[in-house]
Structures are given as C-alpha cells and as structure tokens.
Design a protein around this nucleic acid. Structure first.
Lengths: 174, 174
DNA sequence: TTGATTGCAAAGCATTTGCATGCTA
DNA sequence: TAGCATGCAAATGCTTTGCAATCAA
C-alpha cells in the first residue's frame, strides 16, 4: 500500500514522455501531475472529475490544460474516450488494459465492463462481409443492473434515494 | 412514383396520432409536416437537416419545433437516435425497420447498416451472466469502407476530393 | 375557454480557441 | 532565445428553456 512517489506506473510514464518527445512537445509539471492522478484513479472520469482531483494538489491548474492533456494521453495510447449517453466524455485507462465494452445501468449509473472474444470475432466477420476494415468499435448496452432489478422488484413505487453517477438522458440510446 | 399526398405511411401516421392522443397532446400542421418529411427521407438526418427540408415547404417552422417533434417521434417509436461520433444526433426510421447496428467509414462518412442475430444473442448471454437486463444497445464500428480502402491503395498520397458527410473528430471513438 | 404549441431569443453545457504571459529545451 | 504550454475569457456548436402570442380541442 505504501509506495514511494514516482515508483508506480513507470511504464505508462515512459510512454508518455516518449510520445511527448516524438511529437516535439514539452514536459511540464501540469502534465506530470495530471498523468499521475489519472493513473492513480481506476475509474471512468470526465475531464471535470479529473480537474477537481488535480485542483486538490495544485489549484493553479486550469480546466483547459486538463482537457488538452487528456487528449494527449489518448493520443499516446494511455487513455480511451468513452461515452455513456449523458453527453459527457469519460476517460478510462487504455494501456495494459484489455479492450472491453460496457453495460450501463440507467437506474444507478453503474458501469459494468465486459469482454467477449466471440462477439469481437463475429464483428470482424461482419465487417469482412462488407469489405469494411475496422479500426475500433464501441458496444454499449443500457438497462437495469442486478441490484437495481432486485430493488425495483421489492419496493415497487418508492423513489430511489441515491443519485446515479451517470444519469442517462431521455428516451433513447447514446 | 406518383402517389397521392397522404396515401403513404398510413401506419406510421396512425401511430403518431395515437401517441399524441394517449399523451394528451395536440395535432398541429407543423408536426404533420415534420413527420411527413421525416418519413419520406430514408437517410440518417440531424435535426438541422430536417429543419432545412421543412423550411422548403414551410419557412415559418422553427428549429425548436423540429427538435421537439423529433423527440416526440422517438417517444412514439417512429424514430431512433444514433450518433456517429461527430457530436451530432442523427435520427433514423425505427418503425418497421429491423434493429441494426452501424459501421462508419472515417474516410468518406459512409454508414453501413448491418444486423447479426448471433451477436445479439451473445450480447444477451453476456448480460445474463452479469444479471443485467438490457433495454437497448448500440454497436458501432469505425474504419475504412471498401471503396475508400481501394482508393487509398491506389493513390497513396493524393488528398481526397469529396468531404465526408460525417466527419469523425480527432483520435478515438465516440 | 383552456391549456398545449409555437417561434424567437436567451440560456445551458461540454468543449475548443485566441491570446498575452510563462516556461521548457 | 524560440516556440511550445498555460490559464483566462470568450467563442463555439448543439440542444434546451423561458415566455408571450397562437391555436387545437
């Protein structure tokens, strides 16, 4: 649990530095800090989420820099953008993380990550059938998670207390 | 080709009227016109696309009404919202249209609709495994379509002439 | 008549951009 | 020192909302 500062995520940090050098960019304290906090947070977070976390460490860092740095991390292959249908862009770890897809509970906002090799295979087969060469994809399912399903079955009409972290807007999909 | 006004899409129109009545809403000339034009257009279109088409028939109709009516059509089950990654919301026909997913060419903007019962089945199986009850889903693949792939293979370095209808932003996904 | 509907303008939100200042390499 | 990076404010793009006037039922 107790690790020295800077000892973790060495691989990721090297990747970032390399990307920065290859692109002729510059290393800054802000970028270091944002990367550090991003790597430490094993959740889906928005630019704003990350901004507030960064604020706690260094109130001088601006929103814009967080936005820009997240783009950078994405380019470097460390982060991946995802959307769950509430209009915000979430970021998740990408490096050393197996590709996966998402189920989103429209009741409590829970996000379940899953992976199915069979589905991926069928997708590729489908693409091939159309002469399509896929570079990336996104599969999301919305619905009700186990806990919310059970809760709903019991208390039929009571309004839920906790607010979902991801509130999906109106009727349909994305 | 020559069909009398009002003879087409009777089913859809009835569904719309029914929905309007059930919800205690009112039938208006704007809604009729917007529905009419939406039904006639067998493409993915944004609220703005539809707005301009409507404008040609009745310049008095406002953007807002188109937005609101598209939401209405979605609620009535006649339309479905889709996003292709350019930040806009597209609408497609939903009634009497088999559910399908999308491949989006990041070169020319071509959108291919496809359906795979096997994939759907595996999705449901996956969901079940997590105790998740899905209500709807979205599967999209981005990549290069057949034509663009061929074109790229030939003229390696010439810039493309036509602009894609759907221009996918920056690096990643959604 | 009543209350839903419309269209305009203004507001909202998440994100991006312009620009003067600050700082890496 | 050159020019990338930063942070602020302003701008953007899509969508929603407030509101007075209009109109369907």
């Amino acid at each position: 649990m107790a690790k020295k500062k800077g000892e973790e995520f060495q691989q990721e940090k090297e990747i970032f530095l390399e990307h920065i050098q290859n692109a002729g960019l510059r290393r800054t304290s802000q970028r270091d800090l944002i990367l550090e906090i991003f790597l430490k947070t094993e959740e889906h977070l928005t630019s704003e989420d990350l901004y507030w976390l960064v604020q706690k460490k260094d109130p001088g860092v601006g929103q814009t820099t967080v936005y820009r740095t997240l783009k950078l991390l994405t380019e470097a292959g460390l982060a991946r953008e995802v959307r769950f249908g509430d209009g915000k862009t979430y970021y998740e770890h990408h490096y050393n993380h197996e590709h996966h897809d998402h189920m989103i509970c429209t009741e409590c906002g829970l996000v379940i990550e899953f992976f199915s090799a069979e589905i991926e295979e069928l997708q590729d087969k489908m693409a091939e059938k159309f002469g399509f060469t896929p570079t990336h994809h996104s599969l999301r399912m919305w619905g009700v998670c186990e806990a919310c399903g059970a809760r709903k079955r019991e208390l039929q009409s009571a309004p839920s207390g906790a607010q979902p972290r991801v509130r999906v807007k109106s009727g349909v999909a994305d």
